[in-house]
């Protein structure tokens, strides 16, 4: 029965783009016809609703469900664009201890039996109770990081903790990549990050003004055909579904780009 995939989106460090990633992957998977449930496990600091533009529809939240004040179905908020995408919002007025790992597992089992093919869990930053809750029911993990020392170090810590929690083989999303900084060697490249963390690369998302815009509006960027980051998220969603999609190339076209590549020996 329980066939739905349960993927926790985590990072250790805050602010690397977990929530944006969760929202966009959920949206992209839903546009591909998947039945998707997003769980905001960041209790007390909920934001997934805001990124999805669903903040004014919350009547019940995850704590109401586990404390049996409502049924799970009542707390699920249907996306206004994609009826096959639902959000289980976090409580804003409680803290991480309001949900236990066991309750989380129960919730996930219920969602699976409701036929959700993908259940994505937006994990809070940190490695404490909130992290343990968010990872409790997951069977797969996606680690989001930025090409930046502190984010990579925290990601490494998370890999270790996930292993300890029997969540092996996490995959990696390198977010906020700024290709031109990589080109002029002021930012670590995806290869650098991958070399250090040594886990499977799931995707690369470029830093993109469109993301700020879409967050402001509550419209995930993966809905935008034109945005490069939206394309990146759609590609990641396809890879999650098992498709083989080549990674985006962030070429800086033109003479200078080619000259740079020639001089630095980058392909």
């Amino acid at each position: 029965m329980a066939t739905g995939r349960v993927i926790v989106v985590t990072s250790g460090k805050g602010g690397v783009g977990k929530t944006t990633t969760t929202a966009n992957l959920g949206m992209a998977l839903a546009t591909m016809g998947e039945k998707v449930a997003l769980i905001d496990a960041d209790i007390g600091l909920r934001n997934l609703d805001l990124i999805l533009g669903l903040e004014n529809r919350i009547v019940y939240d995850i704590v109401d469900v586990v404390e049996k004040r409502c049924k799970l179905r009542q707390a699920l908020i249907k996306d206004k664009r994609m009826p096959n995408l639902v959000l289980l919002p976090a409580a804003q007025t409680r803290d991480k201890s309001a949900v236990t790992p066991e309750q989380m597992k129960e919730l996930i089992a219920d969602l699976q039996s409701d036929g959700f093919g993908f259940i994505l869990i937006d994990c809070p930053a940190g490695i404490e109770q909130g992290f343990r809750n968010a990872t409790a029911g997951a069977t797969e993990a996606v680690i989001v990081t930025n090409p930046e020392v502190s984010a990579v170090r925290d990601a490494d810590r998370i890999v270790g903790l996930l292993e300890a929690a029997e969540l092996r083989n996490p995959s990696l999303i390198v977010n906020r990549l700024r290709p031109h900084l990589v080109k002029n060697e002021t930012m670590m490249s995806v290869e650098d990050v991958q070399e250090i963390l040594n886990i499977k690369l799931l995707g690369i998302v470029p830093d993109d003004e469109a993301i700020i815009n879409s967050s402001n509006r509550g419209e995930p960027v993966s809905l935008h055909e034109a945005a490069k980051s939206g394309q990146a998220y759609r590609n990641i969603a396809r890879r999650l579904r098992g498709e083989d999609v080549p990674f985006l190339q962030f070429d800086e076209g033109g003479l200078m780009g080619r000259l740079r590549r020639f001089l630095t020996g980058v392909r």
Partner: peptide, 12 residues
């Protein structure tokens, strides 16, 4: 009507 249409009236 909230879009996830609660089964029951709001419990207050």
């Amino acid at each position: 009507t909230v879009e996830h249409a609660p089964d029951e009236a709001l419990s207050v």
